[in-house]
């Protein structure tokens, strides 16, 4: 288990229309959550190239969260479906690369779900803390 001081580094890719706005709502509602996730705004969850995620892990991210609109609610009609399919494959690829797929999370968070954003961040942070630091840092010299 991770020691008490361990503060994981988690990269969050949030879609502009739903999840980034949901995170904003969590903010304006002053919902408290752990500070482990720093977010990057993309227009759609389908913009997140799986290579970005693999690279993030190779560079030492302890976790990666991608959040987009709920299925059926995509601002671009079907981007989140593309994302879902790509990331299902990504998990397989991560296994073969000996990266732990459980360090990656895809969640659907709408613009009105501030509390859900808080829940996802809190739960995922705890989950990553449970896994401890990403061992890839010790494994490779990439």
């Amino acid at each position: 288990m991770a020691d008490k001081e361990y503060n994981p580094k988690i990269v969050g890719f949030l879609c502009n229309w739903c999840s980034y706005a949901g995170a904003d709502l969590a903010g304006s509602s002053k919902l408290k959550m752990p500070p482990a996730i720093s977010s990057i705004r993309v227009m759609c969850s389908s913009r997140v190239d799986p290579v970005l995620i693999v690279t993030a892990f190779l560079r030492g991210a302890d976790g990666v969260l991608v959040a987009g609109c709920h299925p059926g609610d995509c601002h671009y009609e079907k981007g989140n479906y593309y994302a879902r399919r790509r990331f299902a494959l990504l998990r397989k690829v991560m296994e073969t690369l000996d990266l732990e797929p459980e360090r990656f999370r895809l969640s659907w968070i709408s613009a009105s779900e501030g509390p859900r954003f808080k829940e996802v961040v809190t739960e995922f942070t705890e989950h990553i803390k449970g896994l401890g630091p990403n061992p890839v840092k010790e494994k490779t010299s990439l």
Partner: peptide, 15 residues
């Protein structure tokens, strides 16, 4: 303005 090269560097800045 949201090129792969930008996203890689942004992600790296987080980690």
């Amino acid at each position: 303005n949201l090129q792969d090269s930008q996203l890689f560097r942004m992600s790296e800045a987080v980690t």
